[in-house]
Design a protein around this nucleic acid. Structure first.
Length: 560
RNA sequence: GUGCCCGUAGCUCAGUGGAUAGAGCACUUGACUACGAAUCAAGGGGUCGCAGGUUCGACUCCUGCCGGGCACGCCA
């Protein structure tokens, strides 16, 4: 909020003097390094010097001259090569703090935009429980969705269930075999070569009667009548349902809830795929070769065309993807965001091709590749594979370190960095997890406010506008205030950069400022003036922390 | 072979055109008879993989190379 205001004022000054319009993304307004003067600083003179071809110093001095006429800026400093730094006016501090304290949802954009964002993430195959890799995607996607929501967009969280195709059949057969073995109907399970060998399949076989109490009877009946296909169909249906429940429960424990679990199978109903493909056919983007149907993705920059219908007459997954994209748009999406694993980077071109072939701008699509999670075991790299059953379950992690620490751990990394995951390390680090650092700061704030109330200091009755002075601020107090004022800018910037890690970083900085302040100064003292001033800062700070926690999906603990 | 991601302190990582490159962990030293020491203050530790280029300015952008990882099906 405040950064935006400052940027606008600076841009206006430049417009007045030089008649040029500055790019918002390039213009920076930020806190200068520790050893430099001023609470805020800007690179504005450098930007202007690029187009005007004058020394940054001269430009800075002229801009500074005009800044003096604006009461936003109180002390203006020129710093060596061409920076302009300044302090904010005390009055501005006060007005902003009052708003933070008094306005409900001050940080949340009140004007809801018309745009609907379809955000797809996790979308793990429905053939097993979620592992830590999905955990990273879940945390990332959820916070991204929160950020969009916070900034006034409508967001639809979607989980694509790949419940169609061969892998499901293999899973169903594996499950069936395990079931027969478990109930001694068969001596030994015969898991197909490409089947699912992991122990978790045995667990599912053990527990599946929880969603189908009459399963044993049905199995025996079908076996007696030699209805092998029906038997597999039954295990397909039950297995899918069981796994979906499992995944949904895990995600719920992780604080993530989806608006829609979209079934790939549903695209096959009512010839939907056929209809959408025909739409592209009309544009002559589809041709036949060697008995198969091909989509001319090369027209949109792909390196080769892709098959959409195999020579055996089956649609490929790529065909259902085409229909799926159209379905998102049919359901009102103006913007499509997909969070995919690094193994999908080759699909970006293809999906862009789909969007364009369907007649939409490719800008409406944003694909974020969330880099891989490497599973380590005491330093050794280990291959995670659902088929082989080698994985670290998200459930295990949650049990081990808890939801807050797990979310924080995943969110600290940005999306394009690899993450080495060592369960031993996670266990060890859980006690030192920075999430406790930020939660502790919040608990301390609550405690002080509680303490003040016990001392019968009723801040609610104090008139902040008239009776509280924000003069003579200590450095630590100013740090807290700038942290408070910058919060909404952090939320906007993180959204624009698709970077939840930025939120985490800023929250940590804020907590750090608070802990420093706490150790140096006392809030509740004999001196009424100072006590009120500090209590008001803390009231605002508490609100800011609550907003950060809400976006990150972390619990705000009043006591640790 | 082609494409994508990564290479920053002993370890785990922030930082994507700006100010003396930052945190946490680990290590050393100090701070509780006052709102919680799960905290704070201070210290050591770096040729930002290497070499060129672009410019007022490069960890950041471009080119080449080295090292690590992933992906390149009429599988999903």
């Amino acid at each position: 909020m405040i950064t935006k205001l400052l940027k606008e004022s600076l841009k206006k000054i430049v417009r007045d003097i030089y008649e040029i319009e500055l790019n918002d993304m390039e213009l920076k307004v930020e806190k200068p390094p520790e050893n430099q003067p001023g609470e805020f600083g800007s690179n504005i003179a450098f930007l202007v010097s690029k187009t005007v071809k004058k020394a940054p110093e001269d430009i800075a001095l002229s801009i500074m001259n005009n800044m003096k006429n604006n009461n936003l800026f109180s002390n203006i400093f020129y710093v060596k090569p061409g920076y302009i730094n300044w302090n904010l006016s005390i009055e501005l501090y006060k007005q902003e703090l009052i708003k933070v304290i008094k306005e409900q949802n001050y940080f949340k954009e009140k004007q809801v935009k018309n745009e609907l964002i379809n955000l797809e993430f996790v979308s793990a195959n429905p053939v097993g429980p979620l592992n830590v890799v999905s955990g990273r995607a879940a945390a990332y996607g959820d916070v991204l969705a929160n950020l969009f929501d916070f900034n006034g967009y409508r967001v639809h969280r979607e989980f694509y269930v790949n419940d169609h195709g061969n892998q499901i059949k293999l899973f169903a057969i594996s499950l069936k075999e395990r079931y027969l073995e478990l109930h001694k109907i068969k001596q030994k399970a015969e898991i197909p070569e490409d089947g699912y060998k992991g122990d978790y399949v045995i667990d599912i076989a053990k527990n599946i009667s929880s969603i189908a109490p009459d399963i044993k009877q049905r199995v025996l009946n079908l076996l007696y009548n030699k209805m092998e296909e029906e038997l597999i169909n039954m295990f397909t249906e039950l297995g899918l349902r069981y796994v979906k429940n499992w995944q949904e429960t895990t995600l719920k424990n992780f604080g993530v809830k989806f608006d829609l679990w979209f079934s790939e199978n549903s695209l096959y109903e009512n010839n939907y795929i056929e209809k959408i493909i025909n739409k592209i056919k009309e544009k002559e983007l589809i041709y036949e070769k060697e008995g198969a149907l091909w989509f001319k993705t090369t027209q949109f920059g792909d390196d080769k065309d892709r098959v959409i219908k195999k020579s055996d007459g089956q649609w490929t997954y790529f065909a259902s993807d085409i229909a799926y994209m159209q379905s998102k748009i049919d359901r009102g999406a103006n913007r499509i965001i997909m969070i995919l694993g690094p193994d999908h980077h080759g699909y970006i071109k293809r999906i862009e091709a789909i969007i364009q072939a369907l007649g939409y701008r490719k800008e409406m699509l944003k694909i974020i590749i969330l880099q891989q999670v490497n599973l380590l075991e005491s330093g050794e790299k280990k291959k995670m594979s659902k088929r082989e059953g080698k994985l670290v379950l998200l459930d295990e992690l949650l049990e081990l370190v808890g939801c807050d620490a797990a979310r924080y751990y995943f969110l600290m990394r940005n999306h394009n960095s690899h993450l080495d995951f060592d369960i031993e390390l996670a266990k060890e680090q859980s006690e030192k997890n920075p999430v406790y650092y930020v939660q502790y700061a919040y608990a301390r704030i609550c405690n002080i406010l509680l303490f003040a109330r016990e001392k019968n200091i009723e801040i609610e009755k104090v008139n902040i506008e008239n009776d509280v002075e924000f003069t003579d601020l200590e450095k630590e107090e100013k740090d807290l205030i700038t942290g408070i004022l910058q919060a909404s800018d952090v939320f906007i910037e993180s959204m624009e950069k698709y970077a939840p890690s930025l939120v985490v970083q800023k929250l940590y900085e804020l907590a750090s400022s608070f802990h420093s302040f706490y150790n140096k100064y006392r809030v509740v003292t004999e001196d009424k003036k100072t006590t009120f001033k500090r209590l008001f800062i803390l009231l605002a700070l508490k609100q800011v922390f609550l907003n950060y926690f809400k976006i990150l999906g972390i619990t705000a603990k009043e006591r640790m």
